[in-house]
Structure formats: structure tokens, C-alpha cells
Nucleic acid binder design. Structure first.
Lengths: 235, 235
DNA sequence: TAAGGTTATTTGTCCAGACATAATTGGAGA
DNA sequence: TCTCCAATTATGTCTGGACAAATAACCTTA
């Protein structure tokens, strides 16, 4: 194993002091000059370690006042949202993909608003089901704007899921996520193998690239068994 | 407004080139040497800009090969989780806090596991309701380990919510979040003013500090009206 | 042709020193 | 006592130079 870089070693050491409780939230810690002497390195090396720890929310720095251990606020939480396939395989389960529906359909109002289209205009609508070990894991309800993504007209989406296909062909540069809960009804319930009225967890993602809105997608998960997890440090 | 630092200006410029689509995912971009000439600055300044963009997931860098625009993967998503009070006030709504229950009670098994206690041992149980403009916004169901946090015995929690109190008195250094959906039942339903069987969104947070597990808390929100939002960049 | 070693290129990090900038502190003057 | 300015001190950033490490490309040899 290669030696970690000095700035990294310093970060680790300082973080350890915070985690161990040796330095408590609110405590002042030594200045860069002093730490540079302690660690026998240049001030800029110490500076980088401190700067990054501050960015990560571990420390708070102010000119003239110096550096203190930050009070955690839980200001942000990072959720991993990978491709379903990777997500499922990471748990050791087998992955299966099934296309339920693919057709041009009139846009519902909320989706139309995101895609900058009038409600009722036609767009490509996809319904896909992702299985983990043969159990329904996620129902994907997606709209693709054929104006921004004309190539999508040629793609059947019967072999490859829309997510990997889009990443490959029309990478987006901006996204917005909204998480909410609702009840399973009709098609969603039966696709996921749930009874009507069971809870579902919904992650909605809307993405843009330089040319405009690309796609809106709602991922539906069985609410009681699915979990979005985040082990994490304050930020 | 003060001039932004050069490395920041470079970051902005490069990010703009990616966002505008001038540089597409997969494209190679000029090397550090070249960019330093372009921006008329030292290589280390360019290097910092590139390094940070790579950390943010915008670029991918490899030695010898150079720097390319990254394909977005949506690998992570950042949710802001602030204090409820700030969260509510940020929307312009008025905030109100109400303590519903505060008593020592035997630990349910799942909570006991996190707090390293045997099920049935006693811990401090709190039920709190947070209002936005007089409407129930969040039901907080919290367990505090009186062994790790003896001070909590003395606190009534009738004026100050457990969250701000804990941050002030027993800051945690590590946390884990789990998001899920369920149905409102019994006490939860009536506290939130929902009918039985309506969907709720649950955020569970478990925290630790140097001395051990501090607290387990479940935040219950009305599922259809509450949203966890994240405008975000790929990572 | 295949294997293996060498070279060149690019990023990664460090350093020492310099100046900029924010913010506290203390002192001068009203 | 109050106000305002200046000195002090910590962090923030840049420079220009150096060396390390990864790795793609090339070159040698069997």
C-alpha cells in the first residue's frame, strides 16, 4: 500500500482528534503555523488539510479568530443514487429488466411544465420494471422529450433500460430530485406486486442538458421494504 | 462585490463550458500547462480548479491521459437537512413547537439495538410536534440514551426542541439516515391530522459521538404534501 | 510476433515565500 | 465615554519551481 499524501495524513490525524472527542465542537485548534511545525511541513500543506476539513463541515475557520471544531448541524445528507442495476447487484441480488410500455402519449400537465411543452403534446412515455432476485424492486415511469432527444425515437428500450441509454447518448448536466411518499394505486400497485393502498416511496428526477430539459422520471419503490440509506458526515 | 479568486474564476469558466455544451461528456480538455497559459496564471492555480471540478464529479482526470468531461451518473444526491425551525422559517411560514410526551419507557427492540441496550431497558422517549403556519409539519419520535446523555434527565424539553438542545449540549460526530415510506396509523395519524392509511414519509436518523450512540429519531411527515428536495450536481 | 523494458507526458503533491483580506484589538481623539 | 482609525494576526490565495507517480506509447529483443 502506498503512503498516503502528507496533507491526507494530516486530515486523518485531525479528523481522528475530533472523532475521538479530544477536540470537542466549539474548541479552538492550533493555527496553521503551529500545525506546520507539529507536522514538520509547509504551511500550505496544513492549509489544504484544514481547508478541506472545513469544506466537509468538520471545522469552522475565520480570519483572525482561527479554526474551531464545528457544531454538527446535519445541514446536508448525501444519498447514493446509482444505476438500479449496480444498486441491486451491489447487494448480491440478481438483476432483471422488463419493459412494460413504450409509446407516444400526451403529456400530463406536471410533466409538460418541466419539459416546456403544452399539456397534451405528445412525448415518449416508458414504463419499466426492475427486479431484484425476481421481486419487483422499482417501477420506472419516464417521459422523454423527443424534441431534445430525437434519437430516442429509434430506440426500442426492450434490451437496455432508459437510464443507461440516456447516460450513454444524451448525458445531462443538471438534475433535480424530489423524494415523497404516496399510496400504491392501480397500475403501480399491480406492477410492484402490492395491494392498493400500500405505501410507496417515490424519487422523482428531472434532468437538463445544454439544449434544454431531457427527461422526467419517477422511480416508485415499495415503501416499507425499500430504504434510501446514507451513512454520512455532517456538512 | 469583491473579485472572485482566480482559481474560482477558472472553475466558473470551465464549468460554464461544460454546462453550455461546448465541452461534452467524454471530451478531452486542454492540459494544465496549456490552461495556465490561457488564463495567464501558474499551473498550480489551474490545478486547483481542475482538482475541485473533478471532486465535484464534473471532470475525470487521469495521469498521462489528461482531463475529460465526466459522464454524469447521478451517483449521489445531496439533501439539505436543517433544523426544522430554520427549514420552516425559510419558507416564510411561522414555526411552532409542541411537546406531546416525555417519559422514561422501555426500549423497543430496533431502537435498543442501535443504542446498545437490551430491549426493555428504559430510555428517555420524546414525542414532539412541529407546526408550520399552525399545520402539523413533522412528528418527531425520539429516544435518548440516558447513559450517554445524563443531562437529558434534567431537561424538560417543553420550551426547546430536542434537536437544538442536543446540538448545543451533546453534539454528535456521526450520523446515519434512512428514508422510507409507510402508512399513518393511530397516534402518528392523529398527531399529524391525517386519516389512517394516508402515506407518510419517514426520515430516521441515528447519531453517535465519541462516547457511543446518542439518539435515534424518526421524523414523520405527511407524505403527499411533504417533499425532500435536492437541486444538485452529479457526483 | 510477442514480451518486456524504457521514455515521455500528464497529473499529484510539496515547498518557501509573498501579498491579500477579514476581523479583532487597542489606542487616539473628540 | 464613545467613535473611529490603525496595528496585529490569522486565514486565503498565488507563484514558480521541484520531484513523485501513473501510464500510454515506443522501442528492443527473443
Amino acid at each position: 500500500m502506498p503512503d498516503p499524501a502528507p496533507y491526507q495524513r494530516i486530515k486523518d490525524t485531525l479528523l481522528e482528534r475530533v472523532h475521538s472527542g479530544l477536540w470537542q465542537p466549539g474548541d479552538s485548534i492550533p493555527g496553521e503555523q503551529q500545525l506546520a511545525l507539529d507536522f514538520n511541513c509547509a504551511r500550505s500543506t496544513v492549509h489544504r488539510a484544514l481547508r478541506e476539513l472545513a469544506e466537509e463541515g468538520v471545522l469552522e475557520r475565520k480570519r483572525k479568530t482561527g479554526t474551531r471544531v464545528a457544531y454538527p448541524t446535519g445541514r446536508s445528507l448525501a444519498l447514493d443514487i446509482s444505476l438500479v442495476e449496480d444498486e441491486i447487484k451491489a447487494t448480491g441480488a440478481s438483476y432483471q429488466y422488463q419493459l412494460l410500455e413504450r409509446k407516444l402519449a400526451p403529456l400530463p400537465p406536471t410533466v409538460a411544465a418541466h419539459l416546456n411543452r403544452a399539456p397534451g403534446e405528445e412525448a415518449l412515455h416508458l414504463l419499466c420494471l426492475h427486479y431484484a432476485d425476481r421481486h419487483p424492486y422499482q417501477l420506472e415511469d419516464r417521459w422523454i422529450d423527443p424534441q431534445t432527444v430525437p434519437e430516442a425515437r429509434e430506440e426500442g428500450f426492450d434490451k437496455i433500460g432508459p437510464n443507461p441509454w440516456l447516460l450513454r447518448n444524451v448525458p445531462w448536466t443538471e438534475a433535480e430530485h424530489v423524494i415523497s411518499a404516496d399510496l400504491a394505486t392501480g397500475a403501480v400497485a399491480s406492477a410492484l406486486g402490492l395491494k392498493e393502498g400500500e405505501p410507496i416511496l417515490i424519487v422523482e428526477r428531472r434532468t437538463w442538458n445544454a439544449k434544454g430539459p431531457v427527461t422526467t422520471v419517477r422511480f416508485h419503490h415499495p415503501g416499507r421494504t425499500h430504504r434510501l440509506r446514507s451513512a454520512f458526515a455532517p456538512r
